[in-house]
Design a protein around this nucleic acid. Structure first.
Lengths: 226, 226, 226, 226
DNA sequence: GATGAATGAGCATTCATTCAT
DNA sequence: CATGAATGAATGCTCATTCAT
C-alpha cells in the first residue's frame, strides 16, 4: 500500500538550475554597502523588467530606481542581460520549491489540486517576470536553457509521481508516463501563463481554487463520464 | 442520438480575427508589379521574423530580401509593426481553419486525437512565427489581442464540443465546461509551444501521433485507473 | 656604360598597397550626391585626424565638418577605423608615386638628392597624416601592415638602384645591398619624421634642399675624407 | 694627434632630461612598504604599457598587476600620464648612458659600429616602451619634449665626434656637421624603430652585428666605390 | 513605383578619478 | 596605507523613417 510522504514529486529541487553570475560583476560584494547596492539593483531590475519588459528597460532606468549612477551597474553585473539571467534563475528555483507540496499517493486528486494551487499562486505573484521570460526565450538561448531546465525538473517530478501511481495501481498503466507528465505540466503552465501573463487576469472571474479543482479532476479522471 | 457533423467544434472561424491593414500601406496595390512587391515583402518578413525574431529583423533586412530599396517598404506597410500584425493575423486564421476536423460525438477520443494531430502539424509548420507571437505578446497589446481572440475562438469551439458531449451524456456534467475547455486547449497549445518553438524539437523522439493519442486519452479518461 | 632611364628606382608603384574598403560602406556610391558626401567625409577626416590625432577625433567631429548627420558616416565607412585606413593607404600610394624621380646611373648623388627633395616635400605636405600613422602603428596591426608594405616598396626600389650601381661599378660591392637600402631609406624617413611630424619644423632653419644635398653626399661618399 | 678618450661623443648624459614627478604623487615614499608599492606600480606600468600601449592600459590594470586597489595608484602618481612620463624619462636616460662607448678618433668606423651595436641592443630590450613613446609623441607635447631632448643629446654627441673628426682631418670638412649628425642619428634610430618596434623583428634574419657593420661603413665611407 | 541619401534620437558601456571608511 | 564603492562624463553606432529625385 502506498504511503504518505514528504515531497512525493521528487527532490531535484534547489540545484535544478545552477546559479550563474561569476562572469562579469561581483556576485558577493565584500562590504555591506556593496551588497546593499547589488540588492537594490536586483530589486529595481525585477520591478522594471516586469513592468516594461526587457527591451523596454534601460540600464539607466534600473540604476536610477536603485539610486545609483549608471556606471555603478557594471560593478555588479556584466551587463543588463546578466542581471536578467540572475533574476530568472532565482525565480525559477523559488518556483520549484514553492510548488512542492505534500503528496499523498492515496489521494492523487487532492495532491494535484494542492500543487496546482501553489503553482498558480506563485505564477500570480511572479507573473511579470514570467512574461519577461517568455518574451526572451524566443531569441535568447540562455534564457531558453534555464527555462528548459526548470521545466524538465518539474516534468521529472510529475513523472515520478505518475510512475509511483502506476506501481500502486492508482494510475493507468497504459499511458506513456513521460509524455503524460509533459502534457499535464503543460496544461498547468500554459493556463497560468495565459491567465496571468497574457490576459492580465482581467476577465477571469473564476477563482484559482476552482481552476485547481477542475484541473485536478481532469488530471485524474479525464472528461469521460465513466 | 449524436450525429457526425462538420466542424463540431464551432465556426467562429475565418472572421474571428479581423484583417487590419488599412492604416498605412496599400493592402491591395492596383498594379501587378505592386502586388508582387507586397507579396515579396510579406514572404521576406515571415522568413526573417521567424529566423531572427521581430527585434532582430531590420526593415532593411526585409527589403533587401525582397529585392527592394528601404524606402519602398513604406508604400505597402505603415511600418514594421503593421507587417507583423498582418502576418500573425493571417497565420492565426489559417491555424483555426487548419485544425478544424470532422467531429464525431460518438467517438470523442478519436475526434480529439485527430484535431490534436492537425494542430501539432500546423504548429510544426509555423513554429517560427508562433515563437515571434509569443515574444511580442509580452509588450504589445495588439499582438496580445489578436492572439487572445484566436485562443478564445479555439476555446469556444472546444467548449461547444464539451457542452454537446454533456448533453449527449458522453461527458461528465460535474465539470466547469468553460474552465475545462481552457485547460484542455492550454495543454495542447503549450505542449506544442514548448516542443516546437522553445526546444526546437531537438530531443523529442516521441512521434506527434503518439502524443496526440496520449493527449486524447488524458483528455477523455484522465489518469485514473478506473 | 650606364644609361639614363625613367624611374630607375623601380616600379612596384601604384599597387604596392592594395585598396581595402569593401567591407563596410560604399566605396563608390551610385549617385553623384553620395560620391560628394563620401569625398567630404574623406577630406574632413584627413583634416581632423591630422589636427587632433586619431584618438582625439570623434566621428561626430568629422560628420559635422562634412555637413552631415552622425548616422550618414556609416553609409560610407564601416567605422572610424576604416576611414583612417583608406586615408593612409591612399596617402602612401601617392607618396610612392610622388617620390619617384628620374634616376641617372651616371649621377647617383644628384639622383638621390632629387628623390630626397621630393620625399621631404611630400612629407612636409602630409606631415599630419604621417604623424597619425606613426601614432596608430604602435597598437594597430592593420596600420602597421599598410605602412610596412609601403616601406618595403621603397626599400626595394632603393635596393634596385644600389644593385644596378654595383653592376655598373658606381657602388661598392662589399656592402649588403639589402641592409644598406633599409638603412639609407631609414635615414631619410626618420629625418623627415622628426623634422616635420615630431618637431613641427619649428626650430629648423636649414632649408630642405641643403638637407637633401648633405644626405645625398653622405649616401654616396659617407663621411670619410678620402 | 688624436687620443682615445672616454665617451668622445659628449656627456650631456644623465641630466639631459630632468625628472618630473613632484606634482602629484610621492616620488620617494617615506616607508619601505610605500616604496615597494610604488616600485610595483612602475614595473606593472612598464610591462602593461609595453604590451598594450598607453591607450590600451587602464589604471585598474596596473593596480591589479601591482596587487593594489585602484585608489592606491593616486598616492604615488598624479595620474596615469605622470607614470608614463616617469617611465619614459628613466628609459631615455638609461639609453643615453647605455649607448655610450669608448670612442677612438683614429678608428671612427669601429667606434660607430660599437656604439650602434649598443644602441640596437638597448632598443631591442626596450622596444615596447619605445613604441609607446612613438605612439604618444604624436599628441602629447610632454612626451615629444622628453624625446626631443634625448635626441638632441644624442645628436650633439654625434656632432662633437664629427667636429673632432673634421679637426683631426678624418672627416670631410665640406659637410654640414649638424645636419649630418641628425641624419646619421636618424638612420640608426629609425632602423631600430622599424626593426624592433614596428616589424617585431619577425622577418629579420640579418644579425644586428652585421647591421652595425654595414651602418658604420655607410657612415664613414658612403656607398661610392672609391 | 522605386531609389538611396540623409536624418537624428536613442543607449549601453567604459574608466579615470574621488572619497568615505 | 589601503580599500572599494561610487561617480558621471563621454561617444560610437544603429536603424526606423522621411523625402527629394
Amino acid at each position: 500500500m502506498s504511503t504518505s510522504q514528504e515531497s512525493g514529486m521528487g527532490d531535484m529541487g534547489s540545484d535544478a538550475v545552477v546559479a550563474k553570475e561569476a562572469s562579469g560583476g561581483l556576485s558577493t560584494p565584500p562590504t555591506p554597502k556593496g551588497r546593499d547596492a547589488r540588492r537594490r539593483l536586483l530589486e529595481a531590475g525585477e520591478q522594471l523588467f516586469g513592468e516594461q519588459g526587457y527591451a523596454g528597460t534601460r540600464v539607466s532606468d534600473i540604476t536610477e530606481a536603485a539610486n545609483l549612477s549608471p556606471g555603478a551597474f557594471y560593478r555588479y553585473f556584466k551587463d543588463r542581460h546578466e542581471l536578467l539571467l540572475v533574476l530568472l534563475t532565482e525565480m525559477l528555483d523559488r518556483a520549484f520549491d514553492f510548488a512542492r507540496a505534500r503528496w499523498d499517493d492515496n489521494h492523487p486528486t487532492e495532491s494535484v489540486q494542492r500543487t496546482t494551487e501553489r503553482y498558480l499562486e506563485f505564477y500570480d505573484l511572479n507573473r511579470a517576470m514570467m512574461g519577461v521570460m517568455v518574451e526572451m526565450a524566443q531569441n535568447d538561448e540562455e534564457v531558453r536553457s534555464v527555462w528548459r531546465q526548470s521545466r524538465t525538473a518539474f516534468y521529472t517530478r510529475i513523472g515520478r509521481a505518475l510512475t509511483r501511481g502506476v506501481t500502486s495501481g492508482a494510475i493507468r498503466s497504459d499511458i506513456d508516463v513521460e509524455v503524460a507528465a509533459e502534457l499535464l505540466g503543460s496544461m498547468t503552465e500554459f493556463y497560468a501563463f495565459q491567465r496571468y501573463a497574457l490576459d492580465g487576469d482581467a476577465l477571469k472571474d473564476v477563482p484559482p481554487v476552482e481552476v485547481a479543482t477542475t484541473l485536478a479532476e481532469l488530471w485524474t479522471r479525464g472528461v469521460a463520464s465513466k
